[in-house]
Amino acid sequence: MTLSVALGPDTQESIQTGTAVSTDTLTAPDVPWNLVIWNDPVNLMSYVSYVFQSYFGYSETKANKLMLEVHRKGRSIVAHGSKEQVEQHAVAMHGFGLWATVEKATGGDSGGGKRGGPGKGKGKRG
Protein backbone atom coordinates (compact mmCIF):
# COMPACT_ATOMS: atom_id res chain seq x y z
CA MET A 1 0.00 0.00 0.00
CA THR A 2 1.04 3.55 -0.27
CA LEU A 3 0.69 6.57 1.93
CA SER A 4 -1.09 9.61 0.66
CA VAL A 5 1.00 11.77 -1.57
CA ALA A 6 -0.19 14.80 0.35
CA LEU A 7 0.23 17.45 -2.27
CA GLY A 8 -1.14 20.79 -1.45
CA PRO A 9 -2.69 22.22 1.65
CA ASP A 10 -6.03 20.50 1.34
CA THR A 11 -4.76 17.03 1.92
CA GLN A 12 -4.05 15.64 5.29
CA GLU A 13 -2.32 12.51 6.34
CA SER A 14 -3.78 11.02 9.41
CA ILE A 15 -2.87 7.42 9.68
CA GLN A 16 -3.35 6.32 13.24
CA THR A 17 -0.75 3.80 14.10
CA GLY A 18 -1.69 3.73 17.73
CA THR A 19 -0.89 0.91 20.05
CA ALA A 20 -4.11 -0.95 19.65
CA VAL A 21 -4.01 -4.39 21.11
CA SER A 22 -6.36 -6.91 19.69
CA THR A 23 -9.13 -7.74 22.05
CA ASP A 24 -11.10 -9.59 19.46
CA THR A 25 -12.09 -12.99 20.52
CA LEU A 26 -11.88 -15.90 18.18
CA THR A 27 -14.82 -16.82 16.15
CA ALA A 28 -16.14 -20.35 16.41
CA PRO A 29 -13.37 -22.90 15.91
CA ASP A 30 -15.36 -24.80 13.34
CA VAL A 31 -15.48 -21.86 10.92
CA PRO A 32 -13.19 -23.16 8.25
CA TRP A 33 -12.36 -20.45 5.68
CA ASN A 34 -10.29 -17.26 5.77
CA LEU A 35 -10.40 -14.13 3.65
CA VAL A 36 -6.85 -12.90 3.06
CA ILE A 37 -5.94 -9.40 1.85
CA TRP A 38 -2.52 -8.99 0.21
CA ASN A 39 -0.32 -5.93 0.19
CA ASP A 40 0.32 -4.00 -2.99
CA PRO A 41 2.14 -0.74 -3.60
CA VAL A 42 -0.83 1.02 -5.19
CA ASN A 43 -3.84 0.94 -2.88
CA LEU A 44 -3.86 3.87 -0.50
CA MET A 45 -3.65 3.02 3.19
CA SER A 46 -6.58 5.34 3.84
CA TYR A 47 -8.63 3.59 1.16
CA VAL A 48 -7.93 0.11 2.53
CA SER A 49 -8.97 1.28 5.99
CA TYR A 50 -12.09 2.87 4.51
CA VAL A 51 -13.01 -0.40 2.80
CA PHE A 52 -12.57 -2.38 6.02
CA GLN A 53 -14.72 0.12 7.94
CA SER A 54 -17.45 0.57 5.39
CA TYR A 55 -17.78 -2.98 4.10
CA PHE A 56 -17.14 -5.07 7.21
CA GLY A 57 -18.40 -2.45 9.67
CA TYR A 58 -15.10 -2.60 11.60
CA SER A 59 -14.15 0.22 13.95
CA GLU A 60 -11.52 2.68 12.79
CA THR A 61 -9.04 1.16 15.25
CA LYS A 62 -9.61 -2.38 14.06
CA ALA A 63 -9.61 -1.38 10.39
CA ASN A 64 -6.32 0.48 10.79
CA LYS A 65 -4.76 -2.42 12.69
CA LEU A 66 -5.66 -4.84 9.90
CA MET A 67 -4.56 -2.36 7.23
CA LEU A 68 -1.15 -1.96 8.89
CA GLU A 69 -0.83 -5.71 9.21
CA VAL A 70 -1.37 -6.02 5.45
CA HIS A 71 1.16 -3.27 4.86
CA ARG A 72 3.86 -4.61 7.17
CA LYS A 73 3.45 -8.35 6.90
CA GLY A 74 2.33 -8.51 3.30
CA ARG A 75 -0.99 -10.09 4.12
CA SER A 76 -3.68 -10.26 6.76
CA ILE A 77 -6.66 -12.44 7.47
CA VAL A 78 -9.48 -9.95 7.70
CA ALA A 79 -12.53 -12.21 7.99
CA HIS A 80 -13.58 -15.79 8.59
CA GLY A 81 -16.65 -17.67 7.58
CA SER A 82 -18.10 -20.40 5.49
CA LYS A 83 -16.61 -20.91 2.04
CA GLU A 84 -19.59 -19.12 0.47
CA GLN A 85 -19.29 -16.17 2.83
CA VAL A 86 -15.58 -15.59 2.26
CA GLU A 87 -16.00 -16.04 -1.49
CA GLN A 88 -18.65 -13.36 -1.46
CA HIS A 89 -16.31 -11.10 0.51
CA ALA A 90 -13.52 -11.82 -1.99
CA VAL A 91 -15.67 -10.68 -4.93
CA ALA A 92 -16.61 -7.55 -2.99
CA MET A 93 -12.93 -6.84 -2.23
CA HIS A 94 -12.05 -7.31 -5.92
CA GLY A 95 -14.84 -4.86 -6.68
CA PHE A 96 -13.05 -2.34 -4.44
CA GLY A 97 -9.75 -3.14 -6.16
CA LEU A 98 -8.16 -4.90 -3.18
CA TRP A 99 -6.32 -8.13 -3.82
CA ALA A 100 -8.15 -10.81 -1.85
CA THR A 101 -7.88 -14.58 -1.78
CA VAL A 102 -9.78 -17.28 0.06
CA GLU A 103 -8.10 -20.13 1.88
CA LYS A 104 -9.03 -22.95 4.13
CA ALA A 105 -8.19 -22.16 7.73
CA THR A 106 -5.44 -24.45 8.92
CA GLY A 107 -5.73 -23.58 12.58
CA GLY A 108 -2.04 -22.82 12.88
CA ASP A 109 -1.88 -19.80 10.64
CA SER A 110 -3.94 -17.02 12.03
CA GLY A 111 -2.24 -14.11 10.37
CA GLY A 112 0.63 -13.50 12.73
CA GLY A 113 -1.04 -14.75 15.86
CA LYS A 114 -3.84 -12.25 15.96
CA ARG A 115 -7.14 -13.16 14.56
CA GLY A 116 -8.83 -10.43 12.61
CA GLY A 117 -12.17 -12.08 12.29
CA PRO A 118 -15.46 -10.40 12.66
CA GLY A 119 -16.48 -10.98 16.22
CA LYS A 120 -19.10 -8.59 17.31
CA GLY A 121 -20.16 -5.70 15.18
CA LYS A 122 -20.09 -7.45 11.86
CA GLY A 123 -22.66 -5.08 10.52
CA LYS A 124 -22.27 -5.36 6.79
CA ARG A 125 -22.90 -2.30 4.71
CA GLY A 126 -22.20 -1.31 1.17
Binding site: S4, T11, Y47
Partner: peptide, 18 residues
Amino acid sequence: NFTTWLQESLVQAMLQSL
Protein backbone atom coordinates in the same frame (compact mmCIF):
# COMPACT_ATOMS: atom_id res chain seq x y z
CA ASN B 1 0.05 11.15 -9.19
CA PHE B 2 -2.90 13.36 -10.06
CA THR B 3 -5.37 10.48 -9.70
CA THR B 4 -3.67 9.41 -6.45
CA TRP B 5 -4.02 12.90 -5.00
CA LEU B 6 -7.65 13.08 -6.09
CA GLN B 7 -8.45 9.68 -4.62
CA GLU B 8 -6.70 10.45 -1.35
CA SER B 9 -8.75 13.62 -0.92
CA LEU B 10 -11.94 11.72 -1.77
CA VAL B 11 -11.18 8.93 0.70
CA GLN B 12 -10.41 11.45 3.46
CA ALA B 13 -13.80 13.07 2.81
CA MET B 14 -15.49 9.65 2.82
CA LEU B 15 -13.81 8.73 6.12
CA GLN B 16 -15.07 11.99 7.60
CA SER B 17 -18.57 11.21 6.41
CA LEU B 18 -18.30 7.79 8.12
